[in-house]
């Protein structure tokens, strides 16, 4: 790790202007991924701008019934917040399915969205990786890629996004709020992360110098039945092999709203729009769920060693859809 300068920002304006005046800056949130990558030499900032003490550490209800989560709210506090647990259970469950208690106590909302892939080739400076070093090649495509993408990958990159939280945000129609040199703006959570294409070095749509200031959970999905489920190699403290977040509203015996997003299948949380369309207006039967999910996954392009992800994702989605339906119909969790 190279030496670096350190700036503690007291306000968003201070942070973004410090970023502008210090070439090679990075914002420091909980550090759970950035410090890790700095130790590996993957990240080499000249200056760290500490944003953990910005006044962005609250969760507030907005007048329209939406919930605004500050960027520095820690993952554990977000997961435990009564309004989040009651109105957006998939988000709370996704957070709690990730990492460990210690990491969730440090990791921030903004930082969680900006964590990098855990692809072993990305983390190893001695190997080629187009994401880390554009043009160097991809070690994973013909290498060890059991954990890699089956959807939306490119010749340049087959990495997956490791976040659990981002999958729930995508399904819940969350928005990401940003502030930066060109002012404040927001983007749909589902559009925040990118597919790799020929620019795998670019994980998200964030612009240079922009800072995540918060995440907004909309009123529209507040209180809807939702859930998150993840499959993994050990019972806790490991990244997803596949995961799914589902938001489901039944109306008059048919699906009135479905939000479905997969994790660990692609370079970004994979919002399953085709499946959602197929579900809208359909009776909530297992057959309908299977049909819709298989429609979505029909475009999967598994690699040599990760074809299992397709049936795994299908099973997870059908299972969560079925359980949410049972809950909606019986009024209690099954």
């Amino acid at each position: 790790m190279k030496e670096f300068a350190y700036v503690r920002a007291g306000s968003v304006e201070e942070a973004t202007s410090a970023f502008a005046s210090h070439p090679g800056s990075r914002y420091l949130g909980g550090g759970t991924n950035l410090v890790d990558l700095m130790k590996l030499g993957v990240e080499t900032p000249a200056t760290l701008i500490d944003v953990t003490r910005l006044p962005l550490d609250t969760i507030d209800e907005l007048p329209d019934g939406a919930l605004r989560v500050g960027a520095t709210v820690r993952n554990s506090d977000l997961a435990a917040h009564p309004l989040v647990r009651d109105r957006y259970p998939a988000l709370s469950q996704a957070l709690l399915a990730g990492a460990s208690g210690q990491l969730r106590n440090a990791a921030t909302t903004g930082g969680n969205l900006l964590q990098r892939t855990r692809c072993p080739y990305f983390q190893d400076l001695s190997k080629p990786c187009n994401k880390r070093e554009p043009g160097s090649g991809c070690g994973a495509r013909d290498g060890v890629h059991r954990d890699h993408a089956v959807l939306g990958h490119s010749a340049h990159c087959i990495a997956t996004n490791p976040s659990d939280m981002a999958v729930a945000l995508a399904a819940l129609d969350g928005r990401v709020e940003l502030d930066g040199p060109e002012g404040a703006r927001s983007v749909e959570a589902v559009d925040f992360h990118r597919l790799p294409g020929d620019r795998p070095e670019q994980d998200t749509e964030i612009r240079p110098g922009e800072l995540i200031t918060g995440v907004v959970l909309p009123a529209a999905t507040a209180g809807l039945p939702s859930a998150y489920r993840k499959a993994r190699d050990r019972a806790s403290y490991s990244f997803a092999l596949a995961s799914v977040a589902v938001v489901l509203r039944l109306e008059g015996g048919v699906v009135g709203h479905a939000g479905l997003a997969f994790g660990a299948l692609a370079h970004r949380p994979w919002r399953a729009r085709r499946a959602e369309e197929a579900l809208l207006g359909a009776a909530p039967t297992r057959a309908a769920f299977e049909h819709a999910v298989e429609l979505e996954l029909s475009e999967a392009q598994p690699l040599r060693d990760n074809a299992y992800k397709v049936p795994l994702a299908r099973n997870l989605a059908v299972d969560v859809l079925t359980r949410l339906t049972d809950t909606a119909l019986t009024g209690r969790a099954s």
Binding site: P120, D124, A235, S236, S238
Partner: peptide, 15 residues
């Protein structure tokens, strides 16, 4: 490939 304790899965309490 599994060069660290995130990728080499030693069982955890929950296992």
């Amino acid at each position: 490939t599994e060069s660290d304790l995130a990728s080499y899965h030693v069982p955890v309490h929950a296992d």
